[in-house]
Design a protein around this nucleic acid. Sequence first.
RNA 1: GGGGGUGUAGCUCAGUCGGUAGAGCAACGGCCUUUUAAGCCGUAGGUCUUGGGUUCGAGUCCCAACGCCCUCACCA
Length: 578
Amino acid sequence: MQALIPSHPRAAGRPSLALTELESMSDEDQLKLQRIKNRDSLTELGIDPYGRRLDDVDRMVAVRERADRLNIAAGEKTEMRARLAGRVMLKRVMGKLAFLTVRDGTGQIQFGLSKSELGEQWSIVKKLDLSDIIGAEGIIGKTKTGELTLWVNHLTFLTKALRPPPEKWHGLVDVDLRYRRRYVDLFANPEVRDVFHQRGAIIQAIRSYLVGLGYLEVETPVLQPIYGGAAARPFTTHHNTLDMDLFLRISPELYLKRLLVGGLERVFEISRNFRNEGMSTRHNPEFTMLELYEAYADYNVMMERVEQMVSAAFEASAKQAVPQKLAAIRAEVQRLQAEKGEEAAQAYAQESRLAAYEEAAGGIDKGRLTAVFNGQVLDFTLPWNRRKYADLLAEYGGVEIHDKDAVFAKARDLGIYETLTTRLGDHPPPPTDAAAGSLIDHAVLVSEIFEETVEHHLTQPTFVYDYPAAICPLTRRHPEDDAIALRFEAIACGMELGNAYTELNDPEIQAENFRKQVAGEGDETMAVMDEDYVLALEYGMPPAGGLGVGIDRLVMLLTDSSSIRDVILFPLQRPQST
RNA sequence: GGGGGUGUAGCUCAGUCGGUAGAGCAACGGCCUUUUAAGCCGUAGGUCUUGGGUUCGAGUCCCAACGCCCUCACCA
């Protein structure tokens, strides 16, 4: 294959391939060779197949808007001139007239090219392949079927594509290939670009919300000698000069709180975190988290921050995307009705969640913050539900949180106790409460029961607050109940969206919690004692509220993406062996 | 790691009971100045993921490996 790519940049003097060579080539190579020939023909015509800067290029969306205001009649050509550039997606040639569908970053517009108008440039059209990138100048008009068209009088060849695009109707479907060649996915499947436009808009909205409140955006280390701030296995790496092992951060939390000590009273970081754990539709080894800390606040303030931030994110994404998607689904349903009949249309409506989109779009019309995720309608309208952890546990789990016997019995019923003891390995404790209590904390059982019985009921955005203290080592205790921590999680669709505390700023309690954790199970996921963090607290950290929001998951919910890989541009893939 | 699914042309997919490989798109040649996934005529394109096995004969059945997807487990 290497030999097919001529080393000399000019066509002249390239050896022609023998017929036998052509026959022995793979299909893929033959397609590429054809395009190489076209490229070389362009060179022979004196055209650089890898063109250069093109100034004053109009964006297609802007040209469309301008044209709309002109009320162009079908068959009419206007005085309006435009210069456009983009990738050739479709090509329809009929003798001396050709139509191209060309796509730029904002949309697509039909180019009309005729031999009579283009003159000698018509020879370029013949050498044009799908996926080539071109620029064109001309006048705007509409064809007699009413299609907005740039009638081209000058073409600028910009880039030859040596590889063919995917199938023009279905696009790139193979999930593996979509992630591996995201660049193809992005230009071939416009809805993928929409998701990442929305992702950008969501992050932008969050950022301006926080900056508007006087927050400072900061950056803290990714390479950390001690990891902490979450319970997760880290990636390890090594610095050669210092001859030192380092960890990729699992969380920025402990660094950000050091900044509170330093007097940066409102800080946030949009941080890439790395956790060396299992992958799933909701977990990628690297993921993006927003963390923020606000001095003199507490977890109640953080609830407001979440609500406001998600509202802003919604405005920037789903508020426009949901009605647009509904319109697209309806159009497709109509097309199917006309072409394939009622049955096919119904099947498509079902599959594309037409009903949910209708409901959500209807909600938006009435000023509600409704979106669709996995066929469910989510309502982010403020205020969100606020439910006490213990109340939910009683309601769905049927146990009173302080009733150790009941909790233990429930854990056994659910098989949780057995699972946990299996995890402990060689030393299964006798099945008595006292013995269990010594090896498996009451709070751990409670937490497991909660996950098992409550979480999947929490579809609509809900703040679950006041968690068992034993599972919250960085959180301040409830003033009236030492077993309760001032923590909440924001949960939607059974998925943890955010996690917030009234921060623990007592250095002695913090040190003790670290010690307990380290002693705890001796498991590699356990936190490491961070002496410097305790030292920082000893200098005095103002009372504060802190919050973490999983950006990828928020984007999933707002863009109806069922897998985290659909909202990460280049999700981790095993390298392909050839 | 367990379970389920899947892998056929560059792309999207068929392939019946085991009988020797099919379509559409893309490509190539031809016709075509208003197309909309343009159309029409013609041509070419395959290590059926890989390796074993059963069989006269395997894309198809069996075993194993590999990739990907889903799911469970793990992951507060």
